[in-house]
């Protein structure tokens, strides 16, 4: 195992300066917010990170950009490695969260069975998917989180299938907590991290994570893009307790989604059926409204 000497002055920081994230990367914001939430809660964590951009973030041995114990797992295995690691923490009454930090490829695709099994066992871990809707690490291939119309290196003329609804899948496991987080809404983002940290059992958090490199967008547009995604209903922001109680955190304000597509060169204008997109967004929000009325 490679031991890594800490940099004394910024030990306390979850994501330390000098990491290799691209400019405008959602991971940088997400990890910083996570670090702050842990500090605020007086909590600590170990990270389990599968193959993805998030492990590249660490940098090369013997340095690391992570100011916490961090374990790299195989691509599909982070929830299983975390299950074993957290089991020993619990058997020894040790403090600190065990947090998986995984991409959409590790979550929606190759690791889905592992994640489902950990959820079904209600493992005492937090699983965070930073969803950049693409395989960033390998240079931009489609995942089942890639939205319809997006051009990736393996969908050169635009993806024909829509984005997988991972939240419904996770909610169906009736885990204590599942929530979506948008970094355009930092208070809500922080509240949800605090909620997750205050609970035990399996907690699943989905972050819409801008990726200028994969989205072919400007780094300074990152937050604006995820803001439009929420405002237009493309990325609903809500939480689900025990798979049953739904609460919509931020309601769309009728913003037109067109701008979201215009500003990213992964979408070619003629590939996006805007009417169909608006219809899907509205239907999704209606469904969530119904679920939250019935169960709130």
């Amino acid at each position: 195992m490679n031991a890594t000497a800490p940099l004394a002055h910024d030990d306390k920081c979850l994501l330390r300066p000098g990491n290799t994230n691209c400019g405008g990367c959602g991971m940088s914001v997400g990890l910083t917010m996570l670090g702050r939430a842990l500090d605020k809660a007086g909590d600590s964590c170990s990270l389990v990170i599968p193959a993805c951009c998030g492990i590249v973030t660490a940098g090369a041995y013997p340095t690391t950009s992570y100011g916490v114990p961090t374990i790299a797992s195989t691509f599909a295995s982070s929830p299983a490695v975390a299950s074993g690691y957290a089991s020993i923490r619990d058997l020894n009454d040790e403090p600190g969260q065990v947090i998986c930090w995984a991409g959409d490829g590790g979550t929606y695709d190759i690791g889905l069975a592992t994640l489902s099994a950990a959820a079904e066992r209600n493992e005492n871990i937090i699983y965070i998917c930073y969803d950049n809707e693409i395989y960033g690490n390998t240079g931009g291939q489609r995942s089942s989180a890639t939205p319809a119309g997006a051009r990736t290196t393996t969908t050169p003329s635009g993806k024909t299938e829509g984005k997988k609804d991972i939240m419904s899948i996770m909610a169906a496991h009736a885990i204590p907590y599942a929530a979506t987080l948008s970094m355009a809404h930092p208070e809500d983002f922080a509240d949800k991290l605090a909620t997750a940290l205050s609970m035990t059992g399996m907690r699943f958090l989905l972050i819409h994570s801008p990726c200028p490199t994969g989205w072919k967008s400007e780094p300074e547009d990152s937050i604006e893009l995820v803001r439009i995604a929420v405002a237009s209903g493309l990325f609903p922001v809500y939480e689900v307790f025990d798979g049953a109680r739904y609460r919509i955190s931020i309601r769309p304000d009728g913003t037109d989604p067109a701008e979201y597509f215009h500003r990213q060169r992964r979408f070619a204008d003629d590939d996006i059926d805007l009417d169909e997109t608006r219809r899907i967004c509205a239907a999704r929000m209606r469904r969530l409204e119904v679920l939250s009325q019935h169960f709130d």
Binding site: V48, I71, S73, T74, A76, S77, A80, V81, A82, S83, G84, Y85, A86, S87, I88, R89, D90, L91, A113, T114, S116, A117, R121
Partner: peptide, 28 residues
């Protein structure tokens, strides 16, 4: 007396759980 047996969904995860426990210092 102080152990956990995790019935997982595949051999791939069986070894992954075992790895996680071992990294935490357990006999696995």
């Amino acid at each position: 007396s102080k152990g956990r047996v995790v019935p997982v969904e595949s051999e791939h995860s069986a070894m992954a759980v075992t790895i996680g426990a071992s990294i935490a210092g357990a006999r696995a």
